[in-house]
């Protein structure tokens, strides 16, 4: 990485910190999504109990907590992806733009078009080129758009990858590094114009430089869309999230939300002793 790039990153980090330091009362923005008393079972085992979280428009919400406390399960209920597990069952309500996404007449395919997702492990489609990956969502949904080149450039730029791949858009996606692959799948998710982007530990497999780039991307995207991010990295939550929800599961008990609110509150002035211990790295 060149010095110039480092400086750029530095500036971006400062911007991030400023953005977070000036809380614009995000709670008062209209809600994009809302989870109300959500419980999830896998077979007979209850893994999540009574989770209620509001996701205001154009905010980043971080879900933190130790492994196995149901964060990933919860984020997957937000675009009905947990339904892929045959034994999964859900209770409670999840609203997107005011409408229940589990209503019988709702097609999960439409939900997933509006609510994109990025996974822990980069999963570009191996048999496709970089360009093909970005456009794959459009092709799948049959969206007729003539400006493919423009979409590729826009989304790859938004994901912070354009400069690195603009000369090899027709190369196989598998040739990219892990960090580049992850930014590629972010671009892929953005190409279908989602209103919400779910990110399940998007940086856990990446090096610090790639992580910073993706965090910049997240802050940039939050101007347009609503983001929910699961992370194990406390600093990351502080850097990117407006709101934070702390999940916890006692031994053999389903996971639940211990505390939630503005990120500055959760990290700076937690009400619950367990939250304080967790954000200070005393367990988890």
């Amino acid at each position: 990485m060149s010095t110039a790039e480092f400086e750029n990153t530095d500036v971006a980090v400062q911007e991030l910190e400023q953005a977070i330091a000036s809380p614009t009362l995000v709670q008062e923005r209209p809600l994009e999504m809302q989870a109300e008393d959500v419980s999830v079972w896998f077979g007979k085992r209850k893994v999540l109990e009574g989770v209620s979280i509001d996701f205001p428009k154009n905010t980043v919400t971080a879900l933190i907590g130790p492994s196995g406390c149901g964060k990933s399960t919860f984020i997957r209920t937000l675009n009905r992806l947990h339904e892929l597990i045959p034994s999964a069952a859900i209770a409670g309500t999840i609203r997107y733009e005011g409408k229940d996404i589990y209503a019988p007449e709702v097609d999960p395919v439409h939900i997933r078009l509006a609510i994109g997702m990025v996974f822990q492990k980069p999963n570009p489609f191996p048999s496709m080129t970089i360009r093909g990956n970005v456009l794959s969502g459009l092709k799948l949904s049959g969206m007729k758009r003539s400006d493919h080149d423009q979409i590729v450039e826009q989304t790859l730029t938004a994901a912070g990858l354009w400069n690195e791949v603009k000369d090899r858009l027709n190369h196989a996606a598998g040739d990219l590094s892990g960090g580049q692959q992850q930014r590629l799948v972010i671009a892929r998710a953005l190409a279908v114009n989602p209103h919400v982007l779910l990110m399940d530990e998007p940086c856990s497999a990446l090096d610090p430089a790639s992580t910073l780039k993706i965090e910049e991307t997240i802050r940039e995207l939050a101007k347009e869309i609503t983001i929910v991010i699961v992370t194990h990295n406390m600093q990351q939550a502080v850097r990117v999230a407006d709101n934070t929800a702390f999940f916890l599961a006692a031994e053999g008990e389903p996971g639940h939300v211990v505390e939630q609110g503005a990120t500055t509150e959760i990290f700076g002035n937690p009400k619950d002793q367990r939250t304080l211990d967790y954000v200070n790295g005393r367990f988890g």
């Binding site: 994109g116 999963n123 799948l140 279908v192």
Partner: peptide, 23 residues
Amino acid sequence: VPRGIREGSLALGATEWQTAYRQ
């Protein structure tokens, strides 16, 4: 074929058939 490929496709709004056939 890793589960991530299927999930990636479904999360993009592909149907199960499209996921199976295209990915």
